[in-house]
Computed example of a mutant assay.
Amino acid sequence: MSYYGQQYGGNPKYISDYFIKNDRFQRFDLVWGVSKTTEFILPPRIKKVRLFSFKTLRMLATSKVIITNYRLPDYFIKREGQHYIQTWHSSLRLKKVEKDAEAALPASYVKMAKRDSKHTDLILSGSRFSTETIRRAFWYKGDILESGMPRNDMLLQQNELKKKEIKLQIGASNEAKLLLYAPTFRKTFKAEDYKLDYSMIQHIMEQKTGDKWTILVRLHPHLIQHSKDILSGKDVIDATAYPDIQELLAVADICITDYSSLMFDYMITKKPCFLFVPDLETYKKDDRGLYFTPEELPFPIFKKAEDLLGLLQEFDQNQYRKKVQQFTDSVGSYDDGTAARQVYEHIDNICFRAKRSEWNEAI
């Protein structure tokens, strides 16, 4: 299950995809929980159940392994012998979470999180920093798999055929370079906090690289109503409805975001990432607090849209890569492109190690 059944995405998707590709003898039945109000396409191998239905309750009660990236509510009662894996979302994040931000969280969520952690058998970690955060702030004393994030595997795997397919699906030329702009949602909307001069960005990048550039804009769902204020211009593609942000990151040659944790996913590619933070001082005062301020990160930041143009012209790729490497070393990144395989091997061991032991004794 992923994001409350709203999509086939996140770490659970990439674990499922690995099972589909590598479980050749179909020893595992794959079942996906889907929200009652959402429709999306699942791979043929995966069965669908509607959340809160009798079938879902039955699957939760009888499944050997349960994988999710969100806290399960009270109706989940773990039975003896079940193995519950919490993948969480990303390897790093700006805003503090769980116990580190307990004072700013609803009491009902804290109660649910504590209960969920008590039932959890394994949490995935994408970095040494995250492992320390899980130990300190997740009300959790169980096992941690320091595998990296399965959703980041594809960012480290050079699958050119897949990238061509993604470009075709979003309507971009295979020859074009892509700049992805993916702003997050603020509680108070101000158009100036989001608007960029796409035509000038394209002009500068085409002069600098000699390539044709297309802009992809991926809006938060809560920003769709303001899309006319943010989207405009030639060779600008609205990628908001594209189902998987990781695939957009995989094909992007440059990424611009603000406070989204996707910056940390994209960071492992060592391709340029810029942060547009016009409301930085306000954001720093967030009641949850921050693990890092944007100034501590390796990404160039700008507070005025016009300042991006100078950053693009003066960008030094070698210097940027050094800063990214220093930061990834400091947080102890585990992403190496093998996370889904490690989870698969863990589950295979959980489900079949007893039988293997019997086979060994028989031999």
Results as ranks from 00 to 15, higher is better:
208 K>M: 04
290 L>A: 01
225 Q>S: 14
22 N>H: 15
325 Q>N: 14
82 Q>G: 02
60 L>C: 00
151 R>A: 11
124 L>C: 05
78 K>Y: 01
56 T>M: 12
297 L>Y: 09
267 M>C: 15
118 K>E: 11
74 D>M: 07
248 L>P: 05
109 Y>N: 10
173 S>H: 10
157 Q>H: 14
206 E>C: 06
231 L>M: 09
344 Y>N: 04
306 E>L: 06
175 E>D: 14
225 Q>F: 03
342 Q>N: 13
206 E>P: 02
137 A>D: 15
59 M>E: 15
339 A>C: 10
145 L>K: 03
227 S>P: 02
327 F>H: 05
342 Q>M: 14
121 D>S: 04
133 T>R: 12
244 D>V: 03
170 I>C: 05
195 K>N: 08
75 Y>Q: 05
221 P>Q: 05
259 Y>T: 05
170 I>K: 03
146 E>Y: 02
362 A>T: 12
94 L>T: 05
70 Y>A: 07
175 E>F: 08
103 A>E: 15
306 E>W: 05
238 D>N: 15
336 D>G: 11
146 E>A: 06
339 A>K: 09
117 S>W: 02
86 Q>W: 10
5 G>Q: 04
257 T>E: 02
91 S>C: 08
276 F>N: 02
138 F>C: 10
2 S>M: 01
176 A>Y: 08
187 K>R: 13
206 E>S: 14
151 R>L: 08
245 I>M: 15
107 A>P: 00
21 K>Y: 04
165 E>H: 10
230 I>T: 03
120 T>K: 01
113 A>K: 10
248 L>V: 08
190 K>S: 09
326 Q>K: 13
217 V>E: 00
224 I>F: 11
304 K>T: 06
115 R>D: 12
37 T>P: 00
2 S>T: 12
123 I>S: 00
234 K>Q: 15
255 C>R: 05
168 L>I: 05
337 G>A: 10
235 D>Y: 12
103 A>F: 13
312 L>Y: 08
107 A>L: 13
283 Y>R: 02
250 A>N: 15
199 S>D: 11
143 D>F: 05
